[in-house]
């Protein structure tokens, strides 16, 4: 009987290894291992054996059974893997074809610059405050120590809609509003960013432009001085224009500050060597600043003997142009979609 079992084993192994697909394999499994399969039939013939032989043959049959099972399942695994591979291959696509895009919007370069400035000052504890663009003469000029007839008003030709209302010429108008809001007692650390308007329009001046205004007022004992103004503007300009930027303070005149300084930055185009942008001077005039004039403090509720501080202001349009290499100011306001669409990613 042993010989018979061995013969089945050899035959079945050879047939299994030659099986071509899963179906053939399943048929073989039934043929040899099924209820009516060849090995099972052998077991049925065991009744004719001696009691001594029975267990020997029985275990032999089981051994062969296990072996066949194992060979079949190995073969089965390899058929399945093959089939999966075929499926995957048939699903392979051209990954270089275009994607299904989501439309991407864009943020205006000026507002990007404004957000950067706001973030910087907020990180230094400043509040970002707002004020009206349609301002009164009182807040735009008078409360900033610029009475009617003051020659410095000439520097800011304005769009009036009545004798007393105008489009603000400077964000400084918000200084007075903030001082009054704080009631002459609370310290102030604010910036105001926004649109400003002057009655001029040429290649380098837009009648509508943007400014940022900064104001720090604190008790005299906290000693907010010119040195602090210098340090603050250094941080501001280095952040916007690069760590190598140098600042030059020039004494100047603004009615709302005393002393007053104009601030030049080393030319961001040529690095200070001299070029057409800086008119060969190496410097670009960028900010106005100074120590808040006692009259301004007084007029807006702060006692100049007890409080003091500094203020500064600058145009943002030129900063944005520098930052993004925009060559013509008019691009900022013509809103060509091909221009706008370029500002569509993280900075």
């Amino acid at each position: 009987m042993k010989e018979q079992i061995e013969a089945i084993k050899q035959k079945s192994i050879s047939e299994i290894s030659n099986a071509k697909d899963l179906k053939e394999l399943n048929d073989l499994r039934v043929q040899y291992l099924g209820k009516k399969g060849e090995l099972t039939s052998v077991l049925r013939g065991m009744g004719a054996l001696s009691p001594e032989e029975r267990p020997v043959i029985g275990s032999l049959v089981n051994e062969v059974k296990d072996e066949l099972e194992s060979i079949i399942s190995q073969k089965e695994e390899s058929f399945k893997a093959e089939e999966l591979n075929k499926k995957l291959e048939s699903e392979t696509i051209d990954i270089t074809l275009p994607s299904k895009k989501i439309k991407r919007g864009s943020k205006h370069p000026l507002n990007r610059t404004i957000e950067e400035i706001e973030d910087l000052f907020v990180s230094m504890g400043y509040d970002v405050v707002e004020g009206p663009e349609l301002e009164t003469d009182e807040f735009c000029f008078e409360r900033l120590n610029l009475p009617q007839g003051h020659p410095a008003r000439d520097m800011q030709d304005s769009f009036y809609i009545t004798d007393s209302y105008l489009l603000r010429t400077q964000t400084s108008a918000v200084q007075a509003r903030e001082m009054l809001r704080k009631g002459g007692k609370d310290p102030i650390r604010m910036i105001c960013v926004g649109k400003t308007y002057r009655r001029e329009d040429d290649a380098t001046h837009s009648h509508q432009f943007n400014q940022v205004e900064g104001l720090v007022i604190d008790k005299k004992e906290n000693n907010v001085s010119l040195a602090d103004l210098k340090g603050t503007l250094e941080v501001f300009m280095k952040k916007m224009l690069g760590e190598n930027t140098e600042l030059r303070f020039r004494p100047s005149y603004f009615p709302f500050t005393e002393p007053s300084y104009e601030v030049d930055v080393s030319c961001f185009n040529c690095g200070g060597k001299g070029c057409s942008l800086c008119k060969k001077t190496g410097w670009i005039e960028l900010l106005g600043s100074g120590i808040v004039h006692p009259n301004v403090l007084k007029m807006n509720g702060y006692d100049p003997e007890l409080y003091g501080g500094f203020a500064f202001g600058t145009g943002i349009d030129r900063l944005a142009m520098f930052k993004y290499g925009i060559t013509d100011m008019r691009y900022l306001y013509t809103n060509d979609v091909r221009f706008l669409g370029q500002f569509d990613r993280m900075d």
């Binding site: 000026l110 489009l167 306001y333």
Partner: peptide, 10 residues
């Protein structure tokens, strides 16, 4: 997906 503009108020 919108582009931000900056227009004149006048």
């Amino acid at each position: 997906g919108l582009n931000e503009t900056l227009t004149y108020v006048l």
